[in-house]
Amino acid sequence: MSESKDPRKTFGEALVEVGEKYSNVIALSADSSSGSGLAPFKEKFPSRHLEFGIMEQGVIGFASGLATTGKIPFVVAIAPFVTARPFEMFRNDLGYMRQNVKVVGRCAGLTYSTLGATHQSLDDIAIIRTIPGVVIINPGDPVEIKKAVHSAAEHKGPIYMRIGSPAMPILYNEDYRFEFGKGVVMKEGNDVTIIGTGTVLSKAFDAAEILEKDGIHASLINMHTIKPIDHDLLIKAAKETRKIVTVEEHYLHGGLGSAVAEVLALEYPAPLKMIGVDDQFGGNGPYEKLLGLYGLQAGQIAETVKEFIR
């Protein structure tokens, strides 16, 4: 894989761009500004950067109130602290009130690999997915992060966007077209469909290449929007390759795998294998090793796929 880029830095740069475009875009921090890549935004638009301190319930409510006056608040902090911690505020003040607020959970998944389960976020997609009307975006490379931030500013309604923190390999070039709710076929193949998302899309990408070398033609889908999920593309994939494998840095319960299973079970039953973290709190250790512990390294994914389609 070629070049990589820091997702938080990328997010921060993108926010400056949308800040230039839309004067009502504001940034809200919960003592999380610099770690969220907000430094350039703060520097450029000091009066549009609001610091709330370690107040994650409050900051969601304030964002909701700000949105009622026509602002487009982006709230960014460590993923569990803007999802699990203020869940009811997210549900009522943003979801039920249908407010135009963008919540960005950063360092999601196992990113905080050494800090342990309090800081990891393996359930954020699961819990936010239960809120009607909230769009969930899980970008898979830096270009996609940037495009998603622009789309988020243009979309009217609450959004949860999830980003990691380790450098992400660049998979797309600048003319890549991003569209909410539309999965992207990155590789065609007839033997199996691999669906990757977010921080581990690149692992799924590498796995597909490994398989190709071994003579297995996998189709690869980037499912950047977990909600609403690209229904039509899922059915099409199930029809074409029958077997489907999902890859995510999240619990198996409630994340991408579950969302795919819900569609397939009801509309086009197909054999499904989900790769992710099972029902346990995340461990601790170096990030890449931790991914390996849950079978999320490219070689492991390829092995799992082989066994599954055998």
């Binding site: 409510g61 009622t68 006056t69």
Partner: peptide
């Protein structure tokens, strides 16, 4: 606002108050 779960209103109101001042 949609309220009912206690302890939400003041944050939302505070956000409104900041937004109105900004404008």
């Amino acid at each position: 606002t949609n309220t009912g779960a206690l302890g939400h209103g003041l944050s939302i109101a505070g956000g409104m108050a900041i937004g109105l001042k900004m404008d």
